[in-house]
């Protein structure tokens, strides 16, 4: 296939039309592309229209204007069976089915391919098993879905979407209910699926930190419906994160690639330590308690890592103390620092 674009929209305007023909435009003039094997994260605050966009792109909701193309064919021209073989979804809502095993659920993904009775051929069964394996849920196969944890359930739903053998998988906030390790694992699975299986993936998320690291493209939509797209790194460098997302006081740290919580400045420090993790994390800790690096510091910290254990020498108020952990250091500084009150 010459054209690797899986999902494209041109001049798309999304929104609602209710019965009185009143139109609410959510976002307009969208021109987006999603290529084969790409993982795209759709980011935006609540109410910005993420769900509307996803519904329009998956053909559930008609656009107000413009077109959506799925595999080089207008989405409304796909028969529902064709569409099902091209596009599969994973939704946020918890599936509440009882007495279905993981296998049963994933087997449902074969719906567009099985006969009227839903009978699974040998190859169908293989596909189901490998889908479960690729999300690392092989051991979940015989277990009932209502007895699984949220994380396990989510894996099963992703496996189901995989078993549907689509070109494109669309996930609506798939990590919303998961804890951090599971969030990361989900993203890892998706990345792997995109790379190894060559699937295209579109997922909406709130988790900016993860999205920046995992996505090939970011589509960012803000409250007024404006959409910006690009690779994460380009977007970070363009400074867009500062303006698109900053709420009062919350600041996007370009270096670290994440949002930081600003802390009231209490003073300055200088650090003398070899290039090491200890140095980096000592600096993080000092910043956390309100100190920033400066040439004329109030405090100076020396980190020695040559001995058996790392040692922190803290110098403040013309006194020096030895601390054997960052916690000791922090406690010492917090209680000891009183130079002229808060400097600001």
């Amino acid at each position: 296939m010459s054209n690797t674009s899986i999902l494209t929209c041109t001049n798309l305007t999304i929104g609602y039309r209710n019965q009185k023909a009143v139109i609410k435009e959510v976002s307009k003039d969208l021109n987006l592309h999603l290529k084969r094997g790409e993982l795209v994260c759709l980011i935006g605050p609540n109410g910005s229209g993420k769900s509307t966009l996803i519904r329009t792109l998956t053909g559930i909701q008609p656009p107000l204007h413009g077109e959506v193309w799925l595999c080089n064919k207008k989405i409304e021209e796909h028969s529902s069976e064709e569409k099902a073989r091209t596009l599969s979804v994973v939704l946020t809502s918890q599936v509440q089915a009882g007495y279905l095993t993981a296998f049963d659920i994933v087997a449902l993904g074969r719906f567009p391919y099985t006969n009227w009775a839903g009978r699974l051929t040998e190859s169908d069964k293989q596909i189901v098993k490998s889908a479960l394996a690729s999300v690392g849920a092989g051991d979940l196969t015989p277990r009932f879905i209502h007895e699984m944890s949220d994380g396990e359930r989510q894996k099963v739903m992703i496996a189901r979407a995989l078993a549907q053998e689509p070109e494109l998988m669309v996930l609506d906030e798939p990590t919303a209910f998961l804890d951090l390790p599971h969030k990361i694992e989900t993203m890892r699975i998706l990345r792997m699926v995109a790379q190894n299986a060559g699937k295209s993936i579109l997922l909406s998320t709130h988790d900016l930190n993860l999205a920046i690291r995992c996505a090939d493209q970011l589509w960012i939509i803000n409250r007024s419906g404006t959409m910006i797209s690009g690779t994460p790194e380009d977007l970070v460098l363009s400074g867009i994160f500062g303006s698109a997302f900053e709420i009062d006081g919350v600041h996007f740290d370009t270096t670290r690639g994440e949002f930081t919580i600003p802390v009231e400045k209490r003073g300055t420090f200088s650090i003398s330590a070899p290039e090491s993790v200890e140095r980096i994390w000592t600096m993080y800790a000092l910043e956390r308690i309100g100190f920033c690096p400066s040439g004329s510091p109030d405090i100076s910290v020396t980190v020695e890592i040559s001995g058996k254990k790392p040692l922190w020498r803290v110098r403040l108020n013309d006194e020096e103390k030895e601390c054997w952990s960052i916690r000791e250091m922090v406690e010492h500084i917090s209680t000891g620092y009183r130079k002229g009150g808060d400097r600001n």
Binding site: S80, S88, L91, I105, L108, F111, P112, A117, G118
Partner: peptide, 21 residues
């Protein structure tokens, strides 16, 4: 004849439609 769609419906209407029902 409804066995297959009924199974799909166990996941909910949205999933069922996304599977081509």
């Amino acid at each position: 004849c409804l066995v297959k769609p009924l199974n799909a419906l166990l996941l909910g209407e949205q999933y069922a439609e996304s599977m081509g029902m």
